[in-house]
Design a protein around this nucleic acid. Sequence first.
DNA 1: GTCTATAGAGTGATAGAC
DNA 2: GTCTATCACTCTATAGAC
Lengths: 191, 191
Amino acid sequence: MARLIRERRDAVRRLGEIFRRHGYEGTSLALITAGTGLGKGSLYNFFPGGKDEMAAAVLDDIDGWFAEAIFRPLRRDPDPVAAIGAMLDGVAAYFDGGGRICLVGVFALGEVRDRFAARVQGYFAEWTSALSVALARCGHPPDVAADLAEDAVLAIQGALVLARAVDDRMVFGRALDRLRIRLAPVNADCA
Amino acid sequence: MARLIRERRDAVRRLGEIFRRHGYEGTSLALITAGTGLGKGSLYNFFPGGKDEMAAAVLDDIDGWFAEAIFRPLRRDPDPVAAIGAMLDGVAAYFDGGGRICLVGVFALGEVRDRFAARVQGYFAEWTSALSVALARCGHPPDVAADLAEDAVLAIQGALVLARAVDDRMVFGRALDRLRIRLAPVNADCA
DNA sequence: GTCTATAGAGTGATAGAC
DNA sequence: GTCTATCACTCTATAGAC
């Protein structure tokens, strides 16, 4: 049982990388069996709903990771400045310094967005909202915090697009550097 | 002959919307024949290289439009402030206020980026470079101009991703509003 | 008549579901 | 592995311009 849960989770992680690289439409079952080492039988045992359920599981896995590692500290960490810094570091690591794109962003741009609308929207809404809370706790007025948060989330997505387009990870690094300045607390005595 | 050229251009425009909506992998020939009204015979007469050549023609068409309507004024307009304003207005119109995504960005995130690497990279490099020139002509030091330009191009792409993800065009509008402020000239007596 | 543009059935390969 | 549907693409017959 525990083995099955672990195997399924491993499969979801591998599936994530395959979907990330090939997109939803471009991910074939042949690619999946090759990339996961799982036969079609196992695949349909883990994911009776087929490709659709696999993609949903991947989105849930990603959202779970972000919720725990990024969103929760932004909302709850007693030190919001540290949480924002940790967000930028965590994002840099997660996206491999610009060498790894955002699967949720890829899905957002595709037709599949509609199929996974709630998950895609939830991921970005949660991110923006959690960051906005942290910024407000740093002393920014609520409307400024919301604007800054939206700007930051969108800059990260855009940086991933541009970095991949021109094949230069430094584009992403520079974008994060700018965010480090832009998201700096407005007052030094911030909790 | 003129009729053929016009028909081909019309076909390219329609193809662009299909690729934009469905992505490269998701665009089937069935979709193309339905969306263009052209049979496979005509399609393979216009584009002997098949889907690949169709996508290349679409990218060239987009790049041509941007080069003429956006990049050239940024580099050559005697009034760079006006050119930057026109860029933001032109972009707002082109992307339908956030309701239409960037095909080149979609391609950049997909596997097809490698197949069209030169075109994808050229589009973004040209955009960033042309905007950087205009900003420098507005009085920004060259390194600041380059940084601002990269930030703006990336923000537009990110805004398109986020606006579509949360299904809210106002995200895009707000991003453009921020850019209008951020790209403002550093001195009022700017040419 | 010639010739080019076209429609659309037909090709083998491969898709996802089971 | 087996299934049917669909994939990108080819090819042939023909419609229409000259």
